[in-house]
Nucleic acid binder design. Structure first.
Lengths: 220, 220, 220, 220
DNA sequence: TATGAATGAGCTTTCATTCAT
DNA sequence: GATGAATGAAAGCTCATTCAT
């Protein structure tokens, strides 16, 4: 490797870093506004204004409003993935690992409500999306991965005696994930309603109760 | 009653009928387009064009695009309510009644996918809505009613020995409904994905498996 | 004259009367709404609704919204004319007759604020109007008549010694009318403003002060 | 100050100037069309078409149709203010200063008929306007100022012997302004009418005659 | 790299008037 | 004479994206 090349690479990396930094900066602000006002009610103008940047600049870093939003979705998916992978490790047997997956999803919802809302929004409209877009494909793959993990964990649970044997592994792996996401999503939608009915009722305990219910339902 | 009065009333009823018929006609077409393209992507122009009517005519029957959509939501809610109330009756003990509620919701989703999508859309955005609007209030009351029914059914199930005793009635009544709606919603979102993974896999069995899983989890 | 003709005429008159009665009824309601909400903000729909009539019925009696409004303007002009003609008679000499004309206009403004507002609205937009419309022409003639009356009254006043001699009769006759209408119109526009500045100030005295000022300016 | 800062400021000023230039350009065209067709009958579409601009561009410079129109009103008010303040100075005694105020208003009407029409339109509808809007408030203050000036000038006129002593200062100050605006407004409305009656009659002399009449009425 | 002015299709809603019944 | 359903042009305004500088 010549000196020239090294310098070039260094410079390249330096620029790349700068670009990534700026993208981060934009995403940080976009995250705030998208979360506060929703995707449709957020204009590129507003994001640019908040950043004290020109509108055109946003388009240097993101090819479209969609692209900017998808980047946030992707970041959210990565965070979720990390939480899940980490929390699975913390448990020993198959049942606890599965329950930890559920807990991880709830944790994601509670600690990153903004990213959570983006992921949900994205999933809700993914059906209309062009499946040739890279981000879409990528997310599809991630989904599939989750089912494979769940399948393995159920098998492991049956094997180590923590999960009862009469479950249809394919169906259960799909159901568990569907159900967890669904429960959290519906909870988010209705929690205010519940609190209005009975102010003292700790609505948020529902999610913990869900995990507990799963445990009882799955254990041998 | 004089003849004159009878004639007047008959005429009144006839006109009212005609209006209702036309409203139905508009709603039928709107239903189709809203379902195909979604609320935001459907313009009043397009609905009018499809009906071969003038745009202004729509506003004779519905005060706004929202009003037209809400009418469909409301119709959907009524259909759902009927299915649920009817299917509860078909079962004897508490557990079966609860499971039938779940089955009823799934039936609604399968048989009226258009109305189902409107109800879901509406529920997703209800939080942002003006709670003084009559439809909103009405729907809130319906939701609350469902939880009361579920509570009673759980009690009944414990009483008649079909449901195990260690459930927190308040939490469980909320969780069951949350979970059912959530599972169906997530299933709808992901079913195409699943079918892509394994074309022979009968994705729709997941929902029946969900009911079966509930049965095993709740029974004594 | 045959019996048949008499019957026919009677019948005709009877119908004509009924028509006029209905026109009056419509105008009464239209007057109320036009005054409350202004011409532009009043829809034919609203007038019909208030009357519990069909929209189309309005068009049986008035050819257009404009026509309905013009009828009210015309009625207002007739009322104004009567007040003026009557009040002129009440005074003896030329000066007092002229001042009574001014007082009559102010009286019209105070006692018929609704008709006053229609006349003003009409005068303000008459410039844009089609001069072939009968009502427009008719009103023009009325205006011209007023100037002729004023000219005669000034001459009379000079003759009977109540008005000073150094006035240009043509110009003064125009100015007096212009000025009276203008003062009242501007007073109506600004009275609320004045009252805000000084709550105790009796703004309405301005109009009487105007008459008094004219008297001093014109008298010999 | 560093070079960098200077360049930055220069650039900033340059941009600001360009924006102001474009606003002027838009206002110039809007002025023409608003004057020709009136506020209500002018559409943003038409203004844009005349400017060979996209409709959206107008909204870059003015937040609404109202805003665009108000900018013209404001400009008119400033012109009027300047003319009045300047013309008062040109006279020596109180009476002449007051007459010059009247002459100034007439000059404004004659030389800026477009701005004059906007100011009148604005004053006519100000009553319905939201008094929290800055332009509204500003104009209210201007009105009050005029009355204070008139009061002082009347006092001065009495003091320097140019105005007779038997005037009610408060009422006269209000009346004079009311009357002047009213006379001009009514003249504008009726001048065509007058000219139709007698083609040789120099209608425009009426306004000068009005000033002359005021002089005679007020002088000692 | 950064700018931000310009675009223009698109939206919902209103309402005077007509006309078949 | 009375109805009121139907019309359809017209309005103000928004906003993702482009592109000359």
């Amino acid at each position: 490797m010549t000196n020239g090349q090294r310098v070039f690479m260094a410079r390249h990396n330096y620029d790349e870093e700068k670009i990534q930094k700026k993208k981060k900066l934009i995403m940080e602000t976009a995250k705030k506004i998208f979360y506060e006002k929703g995707y449709e009610n957020t204009s590129m103008n507003e994001i640019a204004r908040e950043l004290k940047m020109a509108k055109g600049t946003l388009y240097l870093y993101f090819s479209s409003k969609k692209d900017l939003f998808f980047s946030l979705v992707y970041e959210g998916l990565k965070i979720l993935e990390n939480i899940i992978k980490n929390d699975i490790k913390l448990a020993k047997n198959g049942l606890d690992k599965i329950l930890n997956m559920g807990r991880a999803y709830i944790k994601f919802y509670r600690e990153y409500p903004d990213y959570y809302s983006f992921v949900i929004k994205y999933e809700s409209e993914k059906a209309d999306l062009d499946t040739t877009e890279p981000l879409v494909i990528n997310s599809y793959e991630k989904s599939e991965e989750i089912y494979d993990i769940l399948k393995l964990l159920i098998l492991k649970g049956i094997d180590d005696g923590s999960i009862r044997e009469d479950v249809d592994i394919t169906k259960m792996s799909m159901l568990l994930w569907l159900q967890t996401i669904g429960v959290v999503q519906q909870f988010e939608l209705r929690k205010k309603l519940y609190e209005n009915w009975d102010e003292k009722f700790p609505a948020s305990e529902i999610l913990d109760y869900y995990i507990d219910f799963m445990r009882k339902s799955l254990k041998k």
